[in-house]
C-alpha cells in the first residue's frame, strides 16, 4: 500500500522543501521505502537540500516524456537506505507537467514498492501546486506563525478540499495536518508572534509538529543534508517527532516554551 503525501503551503519560503526532505528522510530511516518528488518545475531546489544536485541526470519531466525510464530518473540517497529523490526539471515550459504523466510516474513508483511518496509542492495556487496535490492521500500544510502564511494556508486547505482527485470523486477531504515552522517561543511569550494555539484555532486542523526557528536548518541546507539527520539539533529532533506522529505515534510537543535562564545563568550569562 502506497501513501501519497503532498507538502504544501500556498506561500513561498515557509519550509516546504526543508520539510519534504526531512519527512522523506525520516520515513526512510524508519525502514519505509520512500520517494520524494520535486514538483517545482523551473525552480528545482530539492536536489540541493538533499545534497544530490551533482548527481541529477534526468528529471520528472524527462520521465514523463519518456526520455528516461523511472529507474534512470530516480536518485538513490547515499546516506539512508530506501530513500529516493526525483528532481524537478529546469525547463520553463510548465505545461510539461501533465496529470496523466504524473499519474503514470506515481503508478510506476507504486509498482516499485514505494510505501510513501512525498510530493514537494511549489508555492502558489497555480497548476504546479494543483498537480502536486491532485493525487494525494494526505496533506502536510507548512505554515509560519505569521499572518500572510496562515491566510495562504487556509486558502490551500480550501483548494485541497475541492481540487484533489479524491474530492472530485466525492470521496471527501483528504486528511490535512499542520506543521508550524520557524517558531520562536521567546517571541510568542513576549506577545510578538502568533502562538501554536492561535494558528490551530484559525486553521482548525490537527497539529503534526512545531519546528523551532533554528540555525540548524540553514546549516543543513548549506551542507546538503536534511536537517533531520542532525539528530542533536532542536529542529532535527522536532522533525523526528513529527515523523513519529505522522506514523501514528503519540509524542508530546517539545520546544514550545522559551528557555528560562536560571539564577546561575543570569549571574554568569550562560546560555
Amino acid at each position: 500500500m502506497t501513501k501519497i503525501v503532498v507538502v504544501t503551503s500556498g506561500k513561498g519560503g515557509v519550509g516546504k522543501t526543508t520539510t519534504s526532505a526531512a519527512l522523506a528522510t525520516g520515513l526512510a530511516q524508519r525502514g519505509h521505502k520512500t520517494t520524494v518528488i520535486d514538483f517545482d518545475v523551473g525552480l528545482r531546489n530539492l536536489d540541493l537540500i538533499m545534497g544530490c544536485e551533482r548527481r541529477v541526470v534526468y528529471d520528472l519531466v524527462n520521465v514523463i516524456n519518456g526520455d528516461a525510464n523511472l529507474k534512470q530518473g530516480l536518485i538513490k540517497d547515499k546516506r539512508v537506505e530506501d530513500l529516493f529523490i526525483l528532481p524537478a526539471s529546469q525547463t520553463r515550459d510548465k505545461d510539461a507537467l501533465t496529470l496523466e504523466g504524473v499519474e503514470k510516474v506515481l503508478e510506476g513508483l507504486k509498482d516499485m514498492g514505494m510505501e510513501y511518496i512525498i510530493c514537494d509542492s511549489p508555492a502558489g495556487i497555480e497548476k504546479g501546486a494543483l498537480t502536486a496535490a491532485y493525487f494525494a492521500d494526505e496533506a502536510v500544510v507548512v505554515t509560519n506563525p505569521e499572518v500572510s502564511s496562515v491566510r495562504d494556508s487556509d486558502r490551500i486547505l480550501g483548494i485541497l478540499s475541492s481540487k484533489t482527485r479524491k474530492a472530485e470523486r466525492g470521496e471527501g477531504d483528504i486528511p490535512a495536518s499542520l506543521l508550524l515552522t520557524r517558531y520562536s517561543p521567546e517571541r510568542v511569550e513576549r506577545g510578538e508572534m502568533l502562538s501554536v494555539e492561535d494558528v490551530k484555532d484559525i486553521l482548525a486542523i490537527d497539529l503534526l509538529g512545531v519546528i523551532p526557528e533554528s540555525q540548524a536548518v540553514l546549516n543543513a541546507s548549506n551542507s546538503g543534508a536534511p536537517v533531520i539527520l542532525d539528530s542533536e539539533s532542536d529542529a532535527g529532533k522536532a522533525y523526528e517527532d513529527a515523523v513519529a506522529r505522522f506514523l501514528g505515534e503519540q509524542r508530546p510537543h517539545r520546544f514550545l516554551t522559551a528557555n528560562k535562564k536560571g539564577l546561575f545563568g543570569r549571574l554568569f550569562g550562560a546560555q
Partner: peptide, 22 residues
C-alpha cells in the same frame, strides 16, 4: 500586543474568505 492584533485580523479575513469559498 501585536500577536493578538494579528490573530484578530486573521480570524476576520479567514472567516470572510471561507464564506465565499466552495
Amino acid at each position: 500586543k501585536s500577536a493578538s492584533v494579528a490573530k484578530e485580523r486573521l480570524q476576520i479575513i479567514v472567516a470572510r474568505e471561507r464564506a465565499t469559498r466552495g
